[in-house]
Design a protein around this nucleic acid. Structure first.
Length: 420
RNA sequence: GUGGGUGUAGUUCAAUGGCAGAGCACCGGAUUGUGGUUCCGGGCGUUGUGGGUUCAACUCCCAUCACCCACCCCA
């Protein structure tokens, strides 16, 4: 083998495809019934779009972005996430001037230069929702409910929805100050990573896993105590709405979104039983992002989830996603005359929407019947010398073994039988 | 980016430094046109790759690549 697939990527092979189609179709369906329409953006964008929106200090931008220059020296990046491109498109196409809400969803590959691990790839596929246009807490609940209903609808049970509010930029900076005050005295005892976090993103100190840091962080103030009145009201309204929609959640004041643009509502869905990469999806409000990217000041909220982990979780929970398609009929011929007769027949069946399989390389009758059995086709359509002579075909039900003879010409009757 | 583990047939796994094997899967056959069960037959695979040690390496050593696990990050 001379060529190898790039590290951290994978092929979706035909035997796996139907599962992907199933989860993708289910997502499209639920998005549609909530009024969301699909948007597809390029897989690469100006690198600065992500630098500015995700935050220069975020790991995603700092060390995980695939960057390249094109022939004219322009700086591009393979998109590491979906929200910034959607917002870029929204602003660029002046959807912000319409004055009404915009409901979008996307599905596509994202790219991050991470060390590969179970549930973590360098090219991975995400589904996501972006609601743009209103700060009404109903929409927080709507967006979260889409995610929740999608995942539970697929059959997942061991899900946990964790909810938090990171507040508006004002309460957020107030909170950062409070955290710095809290950690200041123990600064020297923190791990090197945390010492960096102290300066850049103090709230990251809260989910450090080093035991000594954990201990120090144990009594740190909670974000929720530093929400201003408006943010408090919003947060509790979101909770009320979720309650009314009967979506269970737990408040986790320590969940922190990795990208800088989040405000107020932040949430994450974790699946118990996936190992380290157990976060199935996450999202939140980003009320300042549209303005930051050059549009009007318009509130918005969204989420993104990864299909790879979703499929792992479905596998873990032994959810059956159906099976690959099997032929309705397997066509068996014997002799040259039969083969000639059968080609127009095949075409007619397929034209009528019937999945018909045929392999002229299988010579013997036995081999063909074996192949028919192996294909799990429901029927075998047999055209041999006898049939040619008698101007008819034999239709054999492979489950029951019953067979009947029918006129040679493809008829509605046969099509009905095969479709049944 | 850091630490640990693994790498043998399509696949799951064997092989005290001494001839590279088995189950499953796959293909063919068991007299003329009837499948699933059964029986018989079918495998030289650069033992991930490249070096080294040795009379001899799947086995020991080094490097490299890939995957897995954890950290990290995040979906």
């Amino acid at each position: 083998m001379d060529y190898k697939i790039p590290r951290g990527t994978y092929d979706i092979l035909p035997q796996q495809s139907y599962k992907w189609q199933k989860v993708i179709d289910a997502f499209r369906k639920i998005a549609a019934v909530c009024g969301y329409q699909e948007i597809t953006t390029p897989v690469f964008e100006q690198a600065s779009l992500f630098e500015r929106s995700s935050g220069e200090s975020s790991d995603v931008v700092k060390k995980e972005m695939y960057r390249f220059q094109d022939q004219k020296g322009r700086e591009f990046a393979l998109r590491p996430e979906g929200t910034a491109p959607v917002v870029r498109s929204y602003v660029e196409n002046r959807l912000d001037l319409g004055g009404s809400n915009t409901k979008l969803f996307y599905i596509g590959p994202m790219f991050r230069y991470d060390r590969p691990q179970a549930g973590r790839y360098r090219q991975f596929y995400q589904y996501g929702i972006e609601f743009i246009g209103s700060d009404n807490p109903y929409f927080d609940a709507e967006v979260i409910s889409i995610l929740w209903n999608y995942l539970t609808g697929l059959g997942l049970r061991r899900l946990r929805l964790e909810l938090n509010s990171v507040g508006c930029p004002q309460c957020s900076t107030a909170y950062d100050t409070a955290l710095r005050n809290y950690f200041q005295p123990s600064l020297a005892d923190l791990c090197p990573d945390c010492q960096l976090r102290f300066g850049q993103k103090p709230r990251r100190l809260l989910d450090c896993k080093v035991p000594s840091c954990k201990q120090i962080a144990a009594y740190a103030p909670s974000q929720l105590e530093y929400l201003d009145d408006a943010c408090k009201v919003h947060f509790s309204a979101v909770q009320d709405n979720l309650g009314l929609m009967q979506i269970p959640f737990t408040i986790n004041p320590r969940i922190v979104r990795g990208l800088d643009y989040y405000t107020n509502t932040a949430f994450e869905i974790v699946y118990e039983g996936l190992g380290a990469q157990n976060s199935l999806a996450g999202g939140g409000r980003y009320n300042g992002l549209i303005e930051q990217i050059g549009g009007k000041s318009i509130p918005a909220i969204g989420f993104a989830g990864g299909f790879e982990r979703l499929l792992l979780a479905l596998d873990e929970e032994e959810v059956e996603l159906g099976a690959p398609g099997v032929p309705d009929v397997y066509v068996i011929t014997l002799g040259e005359a039969a083969q000639k007769l059968v080609l127009p027949y095949l075409n007619a069946l397929r034209g009528a929407g019937i999945y018909a399989e045929f392999d002229p390389d299988k010579a013997s009758f036995k081999a063909q019947l074996k192949a028919a059995d192996h294909s799990q086709a429901r029927f075998a359509l047999i055209v041999g010398e006898d049939e040619v002579a008698a101007n008819q075909v034999t239709l054999k039900n492979l489950q029951s073994g019953e067979q009947q003879t029918l006129p040679l010409e493809p008829s509605d009757r046969i099509i009905q039988l095969l479709k049944a």
